[in-house]
């Protein structure tokens, strides 16, 4: 259903994108020059939501470097969220979703190999959702959730992890006196930071963020953006955003998607000031999208 809707949206937009393989190859070279090895390698990935009838992602090639913030931008339905959800195999929950070509490697190992345990994978690749979704439990229990399902019983270990995670998510000072209170009493921005704390409590290496600020006011957004730039020190962050200013503020690299194809992928500073492809320029200057 979702796919069909997305497809009609796509077709209403003119300008069929041209091939982009050259640009992503260029980038691979650049990332090596930067010295940060690629943590996630997407190799010619095609993905379909309807058992391969139509491809939502078409021949995507990109490398995401370690300990950097990578932003995915593009108009609605361009496939940026879909690609993000491929990184932790959340698309597995959709029965008709299917990789139709290519593959993804994380730390050099194929993500969609038959022996990969998607449960284990998701502990290494955490995810923060568009709508903050804390459980209706206490603040403490929310952060401890991931540890508890992993079978952690030791109270002091959990206490320590909760404190560290909340500190890591810049929330500790605000909630340290009311850890037992319901998480749903927090403000929207605090809830989203709680979700980030919950994610980093299981110590992932990658954090995927699917438009984490789209439901927040500018002040809460600023706090989270600051947090994201800080997270870069310990984690590899991939963020999907609608907000191009946000991409320029938080990310090191930006990938521009359009109609399921990767149009351009470059250093954020370069992509926004001197895009090499015309469509990117049209999009970032607000001519469509």
């Amino acid at each position: 259903m979702v796919t069909a809707q997305r497809n009609t949206n796509m077709h209403s937009i003119p300008n069929q994108p041209s091939s982009n393989k050259t640009s992503s190859r260029d980038l691979t070279v650049e990332s090596e020059q930067e010295g940060n090895p690629a943590l996630i390698e997407v190799d010619n990935l095609s993905f379909s939501y309807d058992m391969g009838k139509t491809d939502t992602l078409k021949h995507i090639n990109l490398d995401i470097p370690e300990n950097k913030v990578t932003a995915f931008i593009g108009p609605s339905g361009c496939g940026k969220s879909t690609l993000l959800r491929c990184f932790n195999r959340m698309n597995d929950t959709i029965p008709t979703a299917k990789i139709t070509g290519g593959g993804i490697k994380i730390m050099g190992s194929d993500l969609y190999a038959s022996r990969v345990d998607s449960i284990l994978l998701r502990k290494h690749v955490g995810m923060v959702f568009q709508k903050s979704n804390p459980f209706p439990k206490s603040i403490y229990e929310n952060v401890a959730f991931g540890l508890r399902i992993a079978g952690e019983r030791n109270r002091s270990t959990i206490d320590h992890a909760v404190e560290e995670s909340l500190k890591g998510a810049a929330l500790w000072d605000e909630v340290k006196d009311r850890l037992k209170e319901p998480a749903l009493e927090l403000s929207g921005g605090q809830q989203q930071r709680l979700c980030i704390a919950r994610t980093i409590a299981v110590q992932p290496s990658v954090i995927l963020m699917d438009e984490p600020c789209s439901a927040l006011d500018p002040i809460a957004t600023a706090v989270i953006e600051e947090l994201i730039t800080k997270l870069r020190e310990d984690y590899t962050v991939v963020i999907v955003t609608h907000n191009m200013q946000q991409a320029t503020r938080v990310s090191d690299r930006t990938a521009f998607f359009y109609l399921g194809e990767l149009i351009e992928y470059d250093l954020t500073s370069k992509l926004f000031t001197n895009p090499s492809i015309k469509q990117t320029e049209e999009y970032i200057s607000g001519r469509f999208g």
Binding site: M90, L120, R122, F129, G146, I149, R198, T199, V202
Partner: peptide, 17 residues
């Protein structure tokens, strides 16, 4: 809400968990 299921799965929970 579907978000509860997604959030749990994203934290490495099995479907039954």
């Amino acid at each position: 809400p579907q978000g509860f299921r997604d959030a749990s799965l994203a934290l490495g929970a099995t479907q039954w968990q």
